[in-house]
């Protein structure tokens, strides 16, 4: 019976407990509210039912009462707001040393690129206990990356990167859903997240043949001829890309922006949009020439050029997230 009627979703990430706690609190609070109002209505309806010779007693209202039942809920609401905001802040702020997985969504499948080089479709392997940051983009329409057991969801947009992160806490296989309606086979755009014990995960990783993602990006960087202008030793016709990631860039129109995933990606697809000060718009656009996966590899490579060389310890860890701890989603404007 209960195999067919689960009443609570799996709880398999660091976020799940926090979200459930708020949910349970709200269930109790709102449940009590509901019951109180229903009981009052039922009691009034029964006690003051129409009887012969009994007139209703006219009451104008009471300002004190009105202010009370505006003010008290407002205070409670502010508490809920703060609680929800704290969890949200956590959900949108990936830890600095998260492992990064690039994700491309398309009608109707999920494609994942691990830093170590493994590529997967509709199945995502992650180890227990590691912070994982999904850097996601879409090839066509808006999708949404949703893993109910992790309590995370993030829309995936074409033409920009969005970010979600989690730390899986329990081994198992969990649903991965597309949660934003994306056309005919929206309900078929599903997959699974396989959470493995670290040892098994290492084993799984070693089964893969591929070169690490930044290295694949480096090869592309050479073969596409990027390296002729973007030289790493001296300033070429294009800006030097070493130590670009997460550093401020002065643009031709006077603005200064931080070079994040979105900026790097946009500058490859649309070089003229945010021209670096002092350079001419001579770079050709790569939109339609490289695929989203190749773009991810290039971005991963350019980010790897900013890797702090002194920090050898975390060898597994790929380039750090923004040091400010800011969430790393898109710049809408």
């Amino acid at each position: 019976m209960f195999a067919n009627l689960p009443l609570w979703p799996d709880r398999a990430s660091n976020m799940a407990g926090n979200v459930d706690a708020l949910f349970i609190f709200l269930l109790i609070l709102c449940g009590l509210m509901c019951v109180a109002i229903f009981i009052m209505i039922l009691v009034f309806a029964a006690k003051y039912r129409r009887r012969k010779g009994v007139e209703a007693e006219q009451i104008e209202g009471s300002t004190a009462l009105e202010l009370t039942w505006s003010g008290v809920p407002l205070l409670i609401f502010m508490g809920i707001f703060a609680w929800g905001a704290i969890i949200y802040f956590q959900e949108r702020t990936p830890p600095q040393d998260s492992a990064e997985i690039y994700t491309v969504a398309k009608q109707w499948m999920w494609k994942f690129q691990h830093m170590e080089g493994q590529r997967e479709i509709n199945e995502l392997h992650v180890p227990v206990g590691r912070d994982v940051k999904m850097i996601m983009t879409s090839q066509d329409v808006i999708h949404s990356f949703y893993v109910p057991a992790f309590r995370i969801k993030q829309d995936v947009l074409p033409g920009r990167y969005t970010v979600a992160w989690f730390r899986a806490t329990k081994a198992g296989t969990y649903h991965l859903f597309c949660a934003e309606y994306c056309g005919t086979s929206h309900s078929g755009m599903i997959g699974s997240v396989v959470v493995m014990e670290p040892a098994l995960y290492e084993q799984w990783l070693s089964g893969g043949p591929a070169a690490p993602l930044p290295q694949a990006g480096k090869q592309l960087f050479m073969s596409l001829g990027c390296s002729t202008c973007h030289r790493l030793d001296t300033q070429g016709r294009g800006p030097n890309l070493a130590n670009l990631y997460n550093h401020p860039v002065l643009l031709e129109d006077g603005r200064t922006i931080i070079a994040d995933d979105n900026y790097i990606g946009e500058s490859i697809l649309n070089p003229a949009a945010k021209l670096v000060s002092g350079f001419k718009p001579i770079m050709p656009t790569f939109q339609g020439i490289i695929s989203e996966e190749q773009l991810n590899a290039l971005v991963a490579y350019i980010k790897s050029l900013s890797q702090p060389t002194e920090g050898e310890a975390g060898s597994r860890n790929t380039p750090a997230a923004s040091p400010s701890g800011q969430p790393q989603t898109m710049q809408v404007q």
């Binding site: 031709e252 129109d253 003229a272 949009a273 021209l275 404007q333």
Partner: peptide, 10 residues
């Protein structure tokens, strides 16, 4: 307004 801010040069 949004696009003028985003793509001023264009």
């Amino acid at each position: 307004m949004v696009y003028r801010y985003m793509y001023y040069a264009a």
